[in-house]
Design a protein around this nucleic acid. Structure first.
Lengths: 110, 110
DNA sequence: GATACAACTTATCTTTAAGTAGCTTAGGTA
DNA sequence: TACCTAAGCTACTTAAAGATAAGTTGTATC
């Protein structure tokens, strides 16, 4: 989003990371994992409105973006822990900014 | 996003404004209108990959959220100007934060 | 032998977002 | 008379995202 003029701005850096922000649950996941490392089940219980299938997809997506870590313990039953990466922490200001805006917005909408 | 614990956080303030961030073109529109007031056609020409129908929808959506103004001049052919509202300006930090993150992200992804 | 556990898959269905194409309006110009 | 303009609207189609429900795995306990 550096170039106001070009007709096609495929080079816009924001375009590349927009998917993170456009996923319905990504922000919530990042919020919880920013607070603490969590197992799949723990996270799932914090977000009961999200199905396991969806949560799996979203976690994989965030992992592929390098925002979260996925640590597997070879056990039975399985144990998998999720945590934010350094890059994931860099993302937090976006969430904070949105949260701040939301607060202002709700206050005005009375 | 204030409450880490509750099972259902429908009261999360972010949920209410998430739609703004989840629209594919809303950020781009806000970016351009933040720079200057623009007519529909001018904006459309800056975003040639967006059809007029879609642009109309998105502008109406942003207007309904109170982020942009729509000023109609009763002329023929019609003239309509779009600009950001005070609330719209409050939204800018979100875009800035995302832009900053995007820059860091692209740099690392090399 | 049946049931339970955690962390998934897989398949299918529904919803939402986005894209495409053509129509409209009212006055001005060729 | 026909065509052009700006800023739409309408109807339709396609694609993407999300939701639902059931099945899988390998131990371990009842």
């Amino acid at each position: 989003m550096k170039e106001p003029n070009p007709e096609v701005f495929a080079d816009c850096p924001v375009a590349g990371v927009q998917k993170i922000v456009r996923g319905k649950w990504n922000m919530v996941i990042m919020y919880f994992l920013h607070q603490q490392t969590l197992r799949f089940g723990e996270l799932s219980r914090k977000m009961p409105m999200v199905t396991q299938a969806q949560l799996t997809k979203d976690l994989r997506m965030l992992e592929s973006y390098g925002l979260i870590n996925r640590k597997v313990y070879p056990q039975v039953p399985p144990k998998v822990e999720y945590s934010t990466t350094a890059m994931g922490e860099q993302f937090m200001p976006v969430l904070t900014a949105l949260e701040r805006f939301a607060t202002v917005y709700e206050a005005q909408a009375n």
